[in-house]
Each structure stands twice: as C-alpha cells, then as structure tokens.
C-alpha cells in the first residue's frame, strides 16, 4: 500500500511496507498453490472411461499450481532477505490510512448497489440511488476540503437522474438488453 503523496516508489529501493506485504502474499500464494496441487492430484483421472492418462483433467492445473508455489516461495524468501525497517508498522498504517478508507467506502457502496439494490429495485431506481449516494458521499463527506451540501446536491441529483434514464434507455431500447 503506498501513501497518497508518493504513488510511484523509486525503483531501486523497495518500500519497507511493500516488502512485508510481499511476504504475506508469498505465504498466501504458497498455501493457495499447495491446495490446488492437492486438488489436482486427487482430481478424478477418469480411469473408468479409459482415457489416455496424460490427458487427465488435473494435469495442467497441477503444473500451474506447482509453478505458483515456486513463485510464492521465491517471493517470500526475497522478502525475508530484504531489510525493511519499520515495514510492519508502515504496512498497518497503509491498511488503516484514509486512502484505504476511501477505497473501502467505494467497495461498500458498490456491494450495496450490486448485491442489494440491483435485482430488488428496478434498474433505473437502483442506479439513480447509487449515483446520487456516491457523489454526495465523496464530495461532501470524504473530500478534503468538503464541498457544501447545497452546491453538490443539484449536481448529484441531476447526474443521478440523467444516468439512470440514459443508461436504462440505451441498453434496453438500443442494445435490447433485459436489465435486471
């Protein structure tokens, strides 16, 4: 996780937080890789159907998962051997930073819209509510400096209505997609 001010790290000195994040990812990849290797090994080899043994469905996933495990191991080792003073602290700071909070807010809004609203409400209504909420939250609450509610409200409302109507019409009428 990078901080807001330096989105691109310098290339020769890896950031301590990234080094530690690599260790975590590396370990996760090893676990994932081994799990897939096991699943591929125990996958049905369709002996009943007398197929050529080398064409068993588990062959390629097994090889790929082994490669993934190898890459995960290299990543972990590289991370352990790279000095990363304060790496864990930086990492936890990045995870709890305002940036992560804003990203989380987008995820939560997207989940509410996609899993909750779409399918229960008509598509245009769900979309209108989402666009309105998204703009209001990010302009008047999570922004620095915050915009006054009254100046954002017309924009948010207008855009919500226009988006809802235009997208619904274009996709249902022109592209003949039956929206949820």
């Amino acid at each position: 996780m990078t901080t807001d001010e330096t989105p691109i790290p310098s290339e020769d000195s890896p950031q301590p937080a990234m080094v530690r994040a690599d260790l975590l990812t590396g370990l996760m990849l090893i676990v994932l890789g081994l799990a897939i290797v096991y699943a591929s090994w125990t996958m049905d080899r369709l002996e009943v159907r007398r197929i050529q043994p080398l064409t068993a469905p588990g062959l390629v996933p097994g090889i790929l998962a082994a490669a993934l495990t190898l890459c995960g191991t290299i990543l972990s080792f590289r991370s352990i051997r790279t000095p990363a003073p304060g790496g864990w602290r930086d990492l936890s700071a990045a995870v709890t930073s305002g940036a992560a909070g804003r990203a989380l807010a987008v995820v939560v809004l997207a989940l509410i819209y996609t899993l909750g609203l779409v399918g229960t409400l008509p598509f245009w209504a769900a979309t209108g509510i989402f666009v309105f909420a998204f703009i209001m939250i990010f302009e008047c609450w999570l922004a620095t400096p915050r915009r006054p509610v009254m100046s954002s409200l017309p924009w948010a409302l207008g855009l919500a209505v226009v988006t809802a109507i235009v997208i619904t019409l274009v996709f249902e009428r022109a592209f003949l997609v039956r929206l949820p």
Partner: peptide
C-alpha cells in the same frame, strides 16, 4: 470531477459485464 465520473463509470461496468450473457453471476 472524478467523484461524478466514477459513479457513472461503475454503473457502466455493471451493465457492461451483465450485457453479454445477461447473467447476474457475471456481475459478481
């Protein structure tokens, strides 16, 4: 402004992934 643009872009992402096979599964 990104606050306004991205809201609309996300809606397009949802509709776009839905449109091809018209399954909500693809949106997930």
């Amino acid at each position: 402004p990104r606050e306004r643009l991205m809201a609309v872009v996300y809606v397009l992402c949802v509709v776009g992934s839905f449109a091809i096979t018209q399954r909500l599964f693809d949106v997930y």
